[in-house]
Design a protein around this nucleic acid. Sequence first.
DNA 1: GATGAATGAGAATTCATTCAT
DNA 2: GATGAATGAATTCTCATTCAT
Lengths: 211, 211, 211, 211
Amino acid sequence: MVSRERNAEESKQRIMKAAEHIFACRGLDGARVDAIAEAAQINKRMLYHYFGSKEDLYMEVLRENYKKILAVGQKATRVEGSVLEKVTKVIEYYFYFMAENEEFVRLIQWESLYQGRFTRKILADMAQDSLPRLKALLEEGIREGVFRSDLDIRHLVISINAVIMTFFARRDIYSFLWDRDMKSREVLEERLKHILDFTLNGILNHRKKEE
Amino acid sequence: MVSRERNAEESKQRIMKAAEHIFACRGLDGARVDAIAEAAQINKRMLYHYFGSKEDLYMEVLRENYKKILAVGQKATRVEGSVLEKVTKVIEYYFYFMAENEEFVRLIQWESLYQGRFTRKILADMAQDSLPRLKALLEEGIREGVFRSDLDIRHLVISINAVIMTFFARRDIYSFLWDRDMKSREVLEERLKHILDFTLNGILNHRKKEE
Amino acid sequence: MVSRERNAEESKQRIMKAAEHIFACRGLDGARVDAIAEAAQINKRMLYHYFGSKEDLYMEVLRENYKKILAVGQKATRVEGSVLEKVTKVIEYYFYFMAENEEFVRLIQWESLYQGRFTRKILADMAQDSLPRLKALLEEGIREGVFRSDLDIRHLVISINAVIMTFFARRDIYSFLWDRDMKSREVLEERLKHILDFTLNGILNHRKKEE
Amino acid sequence: MVSRERNAEESKQRIMKAAEHIFACRGLDGARVDAIAEAAQINKRMLYHYFGSKEDLYMEVLRENYKKILAVGQKATRVEGSVLEKVTKVIEYYFYFMAENEEFVRLIQWESLYQGRFTRKILADMAQDSLPRLKALLEEGIREGVFRSDLDIRHLVISINAVIMTFFARRDIYSFLWDRDMKSREVLEERLKHILDFTLNGILNHRKKEE
DNA sequence: GATGAATGAGAATTCATTCAT
DNA sequence: GATGAATGAATTCTCATTCAT
């Protein structure tokens, strides 16, 4: 009995894993139930047994991924140090999370193209915002005077999100356009450095201005 | 003869228009040839006559859209004023282009998920980079000392691209998450203001630092 | 007016020529009206104007080809010499006709696979047999004692037909199977020699038998 | 498990059977997948599941038929008796095989019109020539002096093939042209007799010549 | 819990034929 | 007499889902 349950759990996991990969690669429309079943080395019938339908499976995969990113948010809550250190840390957390979860990045993009059709259902009964900690920290920074007081926090969150995610989302195309391997470790570090610098300092030469 | 030809051209245009809309909405996999034909008020057969296949039609739509954005780049070339004014202008151009061409934004996103499979073919025989003018201007700004000399131009281009496009790409989800209509004129202006401010100044309070 | 008619006649000829080629290559089902129109450099509409339908065009092509073979039969009627010389001559006529009209050979084969569906209609109002002269000659030869008296004329006609046509019909496959170019002039002559020898003498060594 | 598998095998067989019939009747272009599925009393999807495509199914049917004829060749190898008896027997084998496998005869003809496009692929990985035993026997006969020494074996094989197959291939048209039922048992025996006589003795009256 | 066969609805693509000028 | 656009009915092929064991 126990081994049966364990087996069942393991099968579910294999399906989820395979589905995550294939949905990330090809989206909901492009994914083939047959392909998922084969990749999971499972009988298609089981997939329906456990998850009900292709769409439900997709939602389950999405839900798991939202859980992961929320966990990063949780982790970010426990960061210590000055506001600046904390913001830096949080950005780093998200950055490396994306770096290590390419499939998450892709799933989010498909979702955004599906106009959040499924995200709506999922986030309805989960915590909200994907970068909640960041918002709080930015507010804290403004209060302390570390950050400019005229910042529009909401747009800022979008922008920080953007500079992190877009890099991972479009590495392929930039690799092609610039004929440079954007997936190397070196470029990764370079990117993080740029994000922190750009985000914190913008591009103006303030020293000169102050002169 | 003329009216016949004009008709043919018009039919092609109708197909392109319909296809652009439907591909933008649902992507290559999600789009239905039947739906495109119906939207274009045309016999499906004509679509194959003019474009060969669904995929070829998709590529044609993509190509047209790349032409549009390249035209924006051209326009940006002719901007006058100080470097700062010029960069501002160029960002504004791209920003309003995206605002007015939501379908372009979506097409680019589908493409990025298809890993640039079709973009490769198209850009191979078209001009390269979509933001070439911006790159040149940023370099000019660095030379003149208006921008910091330690900027990494390429990452900067990605980031500017990111803060512009991501807003348009994810308005739906943010509307939902924040329960605010992100499509209003007001939010649009607000966003442009933020982009320019964030891009140029970052988020640090330099005045305080200099004190 | 005259040039118009001449033009019309010429167009019809071009269509017939193109159709003959394409029907011979691909059969009735495999042929594409578009392909015929393009090959004839004619507007598809004209094709329907002149011939009514694809099937009617096919029948017209077939009819022309039956006329050609009947003409060979006519020519064979006028042959002079001994019975043996005449039979030899007639076989040679048919043989070279097939050699020079590969498309005829193919059309006949398609027709035979269509179970003579169209041939029935055509030959109903045309002369009958495709090798009528041969039949008469063979009978003459029997009467004269040149040929054996126990021959079954009808089967003989089938067989002579067979040894001539099958060669042309299956040259491709034999070229492949035997890795030898069966389309060379050399093989052609070789084949004619074989047909005459085989037909007249069979394969038994009669001399030995008589010993 | 077993009955499931047996069912699968049976379904495949039903499809093959139906496909053989329909491809033989109408060729590759003329055959309709729907018609095959219906004749096989199977869902069209299964057909694609088992065979991949219409063309692949056609090739499979062809392959099976080539196997059959090769089996006849095998059987011919085991014939005993004098050379003359053996050749007679082999011709009889092939003759009755064609008589009993009309669909084979038609398939071969379609193939010859397709210029052996599929045969090439199939015979590439199967044994070669369809009448190999015959070839060997004829050579043996020549060595023993039973057959004339100046025979061209290869052309002879083509001719024997021709006189056998053409009869079956064109029975319909001859039935029509001669207004005689060429499918009767009587005509069948008559034909075999003719083939053996014609092949062995040709048409000349040798007795007379020797006088 | 697991399996492989089966299915019906639908999707892309093709074709012979006809209209409008 | 000529042309190119247009069409509707098939035709091949695909997919998510369910049955029978």
